[in-house]
């Protein structure tokens, strides 16, 4: 009887005791998750109304942000995207709090680590998104300016500006995440410096005649100029 107690009953009793201790935490956690989901839905609704009231979509259209999203295949307006992000941030926060509430050491340790790294991920993602938007905007501005200046390699100039700005933002994002910090900076410096050096050599050697012809045309005024007064 004693053996039966020790082998079968006692573990079950201990399990039962532990379950009694764990169950309130589990229920609280479940409640927290449900509250988080409901609050997330409310936050999404509130943010959507607020952002539409301040005409965020109009502003994003104006500054080319919407266009940058469209180019990457995201067709939804910025107000909807932002409110969705806010909804999921709320839900995730509540899920994390709920998991911590379970008081499981391994989970707690993991969450601590995630919490410490989370700001880096957030800032890195932000840098990357802003970098992408900025690279599209500046690339397009450079392309239009180059076309209007009559530069034949306008497309190349536009793409170069876009690529350089995006590369810079990737470097900054990776640096923020702490991935190969020094390696990335050195790689970027070498690649960027190399590109500039290559251009300098290419123009110096290959474009010597072109530069001479161009300067001659500009200074001597050999090219037939338009005298149209547009206004």
């Amino acid at each position: 009887m004693n053996i039966l107690d020790r082998i079968i009953i006692e573990p079950f009793e201990r399990l039962y005791e532990k379950l009694l201790l764990f169950l309130p935490n589990l229920l609280t956690s479940l409640l927290l998750v449900i509250v988080g989901i409901l609050l997330g839905i409310f936050v999404k609704w509130a943010f959507l109304r607020l952002l539409r009231a301040i005409n965020l979509d109009g502003l994003s259209q104006k500054f080319g942000i919407q266009e940058a999203f469209s180019r990457s295949g995201v067709r939804e307006p910025l107000s909807l995207i932002t409110s969705r992000v806010m909804k999921w941030l709320t839900i995730i926060t509540f899920v994390i709090v709920a998991m911590q509430n379970l008081s499981i050491p391994t989970v707690e340790h993991l969450i601590d680590k995630i919490f410490l790294y989370l700001p880096n991920i957030f800032i890195g993602a932000l840098v990357l998104i802003l970098g992408y938007i900025l690279s599209n905007f500046l690339g397009q501005a450079a392309l239009i300016a180059a076309v209007n200046a009559g530069i034949r390699s306008a497309g190349f100039i536009g793409k170069s500006v876009k690529f350089t700005v995006f590369l810079l933002s990737c470097t900054m994002a990776l640096e923020q995440l702490g991935i190969g910090k020094d390696t990335i900076i050195v790689t970027f410096s070498i690649v960027f410096g190399g590109i500039v050096f290559a251009f300098a050599i290419a123009f110096g050697l290959g474009g010597r005649d072109f530069a001479r012809d161009y300067l001659e045309r500009r200074l001597k005024g050999n090219e037939k100029r338009d005298e149209i007064n547009h206004l």
Binding site: L143, I144, G150, G155, R225, D226, E227, I228, N229
Partner: peptide
């Protein structure tokens, strides 16, 4: 009289159409 470089103007137009399609 007003001097006009027609060839260069058409060149500018063609460059624009080739490059600014995405815009």
């Amino acid at each position: 009289p007003v001097s006009v470089n027609l060839e260069r103007m058409i060149e500018r137009f063609c460059l624009g159409v080739r490059e600014l399609g995405s815009v």
